[in-house]
Design a binder for these strands. Structure first.
Lengths: 181, 181
DNA sequence: AGCCTATATATAGGGTTGATATATATCATT
DNA sequence: AATGATATATATCAACCCTATATATAGGCT
């Protein structure tokens, strides 16, 4: 799914600037299952403009740089639907943490611990973020996707809490004792 | 994590050709959490050779093209450990299926159904694949990662089976009745 | 014959990433 | 005062990766 389609989808949620679109992929609803960077967003928006799929209003702001707010045209909305009517490609995942954990037996224990705990904490934070979101007025689709993400994070936390001993066997005994006192 | 490091890791599992390395990322143990393509593997192997991190033996084969089998040098092993001792970057995920399901309310029901069922079936197949693998002699690290993947796929299947009504409400009633007869 | 599959190596063009630059501000620290 | 951090904004570049393609060797199917 190319960046043009990703931007079209972002604008389906409402008019937005390039920066705001980036935020949707970085911290917003898309961040859990897709990504896109400035280097691809701005050229994509330019192309969408050239193709008549979006329009752009430049707004001056106080205390901030000017802002270009992009809107979908009818043509853009139609193009978006069309782009989403294809067969989806397979999910693509790149996890450096998981790659490192795969080779944990070759790595320094302290480093494995750091990677492990950082990864686990990341999942916990994702759950917190999701739980802090309002579900007022969002579509069932969006609720579905959010719930899917939450399910995954919870399963990850649970698995990692229960199976830490597989990678960090020496952490288990002293920690369990500490908790009991 | 660049393709050089990915190839070094692949060779930690044993000597391999470029094609075999690709297979590790396409269908093998790495396929669940990383990816790498011919377009990056072959140039990476070339660089690793130039840097003295791998060596390469060319083998003639019967009925098949010649095969270049790459091996790690000690220098390559050390470089691999070093590359894995950094802080991992965040996971990167791109899911066209999930992106489409996010916008399911805007799409044709038949298409949503197809995406949904295809996605669900993909998770089921991943579980089958994992279950068909032997766990003889693999490291705890590798078992951990495999178990993590399985946990995720199972959670995904469960969630999708239980929440299909959110995206395909009209599918629920007739199907449930069909099962009861 | 053409197409598909599998095993193999290799590459080109296009797209993406992460870093960077610039701008406008505020705040905190040295 | 200077520096660094943060946030909001637009924009770009070099390096990297992906997809598609080419080629080779073979077998199977239409």
């Amino acid at each position: 799914m190319d960046s043009k389609t990703l931007c079209l989808g972002a604008l389906m949620l409402g008019d937005a600037s390039g920066y705001e679109i980036k935020k949707l992929f970085e911290e917003g609803p898309f961040s859990y299952f897709h990504q896109s960077s400035f280097g691809s967003i701005y050229p994509a928006l330019g192309k969408l403009m050239a193709e008549g799929l979006v329009t752009c209003d430049e707004h001056a702001q106080e205390g901030r740089p000017d802002k270009k707010v992009y809107s979908l045209t009818d043509k853009g909305r139609a193009a978006f639907r069309k782009a989403l009517s294809i067969n989806p490609q397979r999910d693509r995942i790149r996890s450096e943490s998981m790659y490192m954990l795969f080779f944990a037996h070759l790595l320094d224990t302290g480093h494995v611990r750091k990677v492990y705990d950082g990864y686990l904490e990341g999942f916990r934070q994702n759950i917190e973020c999701l739980d802090g979101l309002s579900s007022d007025g969002i579509s069932p689709s969006r609720q579905f996707v959010r719930g899917f993400g939450r399910t995954f994070y919870e399963a990850a936390v649970k698995y990692m809490e229960e199976n830490r001993h597989m990678l960090l066997p020496e952490d288990e005994a002293p920690k369990a004792k500490g908790d009991k006192t």
